[in-house]
Design a protein around this nucleic acid. Structure first.
Lengths: 200, 200
DNA sequence: GTAAGATAATACATATTTCGTACAATAATA
DNA sequence: TATTATTGTACGAAATATGTATTATCTTAC
């Protein structure tokens, strides 16, 4: 797993390439962005690019990796905090929204279709890791009485995954004065249908 | 000006190509989209594509042209309606927002950098036409007392062009509970700072 | 059913783009 | 000043896109 992200000795040029790569890949996907264009946007010569990254895919791997690690860190930061469980879930939602907005489907699709098997495996390992963390946190929350004992974890995952889509559903939105109202409706539903009854 | 938009005999395949072209060009710009990919997405063979359009640029021209004509038609529909002047301006704003959201900068940049001079001229003529219409409508509104006599048309144009950016300004947004509040603030400012005093 | 026209699938030669590297010139740095 | 990092340009090789030709398949009106 020798991607260029291992050595993070802050390097302005390399950082600039990473930053530009994120922006362009996020926006247009992997295959639609050329190395030349990326260098132009980053204000960096092609030689410098190939100095820090072996090729375009290497950059993509680094970006994916950084993104994954950052996501995990932020997830852990929320779950390990002293916040109430409802507040934690709320922040997870915001985190998810922020991230799915940032990362384009395009990039992920291009990436998974062109990355080598080794790296795909790594991404899947990270995903599996997050899933396991979520499961553990969920069990803990059940044991501590934050969540009803008879709720399936799959249901929660499904609900979280779809909540952001639902709150953007046109027909639903039409029923509320503002998008915020609908979001609030969902969050209330989520908690007051879920939280242990004898809790405040 | 023999683009393929002249003959609009409804043709499902051709329409499908136009629709897909709009989607992909809007999203990724002109040069990032290939004919092959476009055909794939439209569910159409390459032969069919080249039957209806001489090449990719021809499709882009048609899309641009349709977009321009549709914009002009919608502008006229608003201005020629019996709505109050404030209501007209409000609808123009919404129209502008809708359209700038739909049309990506990418497409416009790619287009203007690669389209032939003849077509560029055509786009500019359309723009000029809209500008002239706006000027005429503005004069009319001044004569009819909807707008103060001492306001420069350039100011209005500038203000309208920047209003949508301003209502999305982070720092401004931070001052209001909801984005809607800020938008309302702007619209109120626009009208009550502009409308003839002796009008209701 | 069948003939005619439209569309798809495939293959292909050509043109264009992109990639990755080499090398000389320039800027930054210690 | 010596050294290192970076740029700009050029370039061949590889990959990709273009536009056309051909043949097969699908529609549909008769």
């Amino acid at each position: 797993m020798a991607t260029s992200s291992d050595t993070d000795s802050s390097n302005p040029k390399r950082d600039q390439i990473l930053k530009t790569g994120r922006e362009l890949f996020w926006k247009f996907g992997f295959r639609r962005v050329t190395v030349e264009e990326l260098c132009r946007e980053a204000g960096v010569s092609k030689m410098t690019f190939y100095k820090y990254f072996s090729d375009k895919m290497d950059l993509a791997k680094t970006i994916m990796n950084d993104f994954g690690e950052e996501s995990i860190a932020r997830y852990r930061a929320i779950m390990d905090s002293d916040l109430s469980y409802p507040e934690k879930v709320y922040r997870l939602l915001r985190l998810k929204k922020e991230q799915t907005e940032a990362m384009s489907d395009e990039f992920f699709r291009d990436y998974t279709s062109q990355a080598d098997p080794e790296m795909l495996e790594h991404v899947q390992e990270m995903s599996a890791g997050v899933f396991q963390m979520f499961m553990d946190d969920f069990s803990k929350a059940q044991q501590e009485g934050d969540i009803r004992k008879d709720v399936k974890v799959e249901f929660i995952l499904y609900f979280l995954n779809h909540m952001m889509e639902m709150v953007q559903d046109e027909k639903l939105l039409a029923l509320y004065d503002t998008p915020q109202d609908l979001a609030m409706e969902f969050i209330n539903f989520f908690f007051y249908g879920l939280i242990e009854r004898d809790r405040k």
